[in-house]
Simulated scan of single mutants.
Amino acid sequence: MKTEQPISPPFFSVVIPLYNKENFIQNCLKSVLNQSFTNFEVIIIDDGSTDESFTKAKQIKDPRFSLYQQKNHGVSVARNKGVKKSKAAFIAFLDADDQWYPEHLAMIYSMIKNHPKQQLFATNYQIEIAPKQYRNTKFSVAVTKPTQVINNFFEASLKDSLLHTITTVIRKSVFIEEGGFNPSIPSGQDTDLFIRLGLKYAIVFTPKLGAKYNIFSENNLSKTKHFKIRLQLLKAYENIENEYLQQYINLNRYAIGLGAKLAKNKAFYSAKKDLNFNLLSTKQKILFLLPSRLLKVLKKIQDIMTKKGIYITSI
């Protein structure tokens, strides 16, 4: 049941960047409208879509929604612009091809009220690996309490990331102080921001599901091939003396290198050169050093199993 809250000023500003997601944006916006906590505004920044995304977004009517258009400048510029236009003290992000579950904002609101001095808040998420097929997250620290404060983001994120753009809420003043998303990074902007935040702030987290993350949609940034840029992003933090940060960076470098190998991209060799093999599991070492032809065969097997509803950990 929805609980009515005063609509002015909003408690949350929801920022949604939109680029060529005509098949997803309406379900995304409906998932916001279905929130049990209703005191929010929604700022949609259309980043130069060339399909019917903008038209589809306009068809969802609500006085709390504001829709803007700009030339294509990238998701970081779109998100930062949305924050600049926001009125609330807390910023929630959602991507146009993803969806919240109805209690997401209500859970965040409760955590903020119970931990008023904290700056970062997040719910758990499911990963939609194929239409209506889901994988649950796995974290590298125990997150069994209904709500808990995680003091080390990197220690907790050596499997799946504790923070995800679509489930994270940040105090607006902190977002501005940290410089927001880096517009010079075309891919991996969330990783960059999470590293900066993780070096300074604890996270109030609930293992209860707040959203589902879609990894199969068209134009999904996670599928782009900015391998070299992602590796350069990680190098900016490799001299910081933080054991868990370095493990976190190494695992990201491993994942990027594996993707580059599958794509026959030369960035694989850069990743291999900087990779600390001592921090990898035996399985990861074997996969990374397999011939690309055999790695592709394993990837095809993984895709077939996924379609049958069986998910094998990352290849």
Rank of each mutant, 00 (worst) to 15 (best):
I195L: 06
F205T: 10
I195H: 08
K200W: 14
S222Q: 14
S184H: 09
T206R: 04
P186Q: 08
Q189K: 03
V204W: 06
N219R: 14
I195S: 11
F205H: 14
I185P: 01
S222P: 01
L193M: 13
P207T: 12
G188Y: 02
K208G: 03
L209H: 02
K212N: 04
I203D: 02
K200Y: 14
D192G: 03
P186W: 11
S187T: 00
K212M: 06
F194E: 08
P183Y: 10
D192M: 06
N214E: 07
L221C: 04
D190M: 07
K200G: 10
L221H: 11
I203G: 04
F205G: 09
P207E: 09
D190H: 05
L193C: 07
I185L: 12
K212S: 07
N214F: 00
P207G: 14
I215T: 15
I195G: 05
N214D: 09
N214P: 09
N219Y: 13
R196C: 07
P207L: 12
S184I: 07
G188S: 03
E218A: 11
I185K: 00
L197I: 15
K212L: 04
E218K: 15
L199W: 10
S187V: 05
L197T: 11
L221Y: 08
L209P: 06
F216V: 04
L221D: 05
P183R: 02
P207M: 13
F205Q: 05
I185M: 05
L193S: 08
L209F: 14
L197G: 12
S222L: 11
F194H: 15
R196S: 13
T191M: 12
N214K: 05
V204H: 07
D192R: 09
T191G: 00
T206H: 07
T191C: 06
Y213P: 00
Y213M: 06
P207N: 12
E218V: 03
F205Y: 15
K200H: 13
P186C: 10
V204L: 06
S184N: 14
L197S: 06
I215L: 04
F216A: 07
S217Y: 03
G188E: 01
N219M: 05
K212I: 01
L221S: 13
G188F: 02
R196M: 09
V204S: 06
D190R: 03
V204I: 14
G210C: 12
R196V: 09
D190P: 01
L221N: 07
I195P: 04
L209G: 02
I203M: 11
D192S: 14
N220A: 14
A211R: 10
D190N: 07
D190E: 14
I215W: 01
A202W: 00
N220E: 10
I185F: 00
L199Y: 11
Y201G: 09
T206E: 01
I203V: 15
E218Q: 14
D190W: 02
L209I: 15
T191H: 02
N214Y: 06
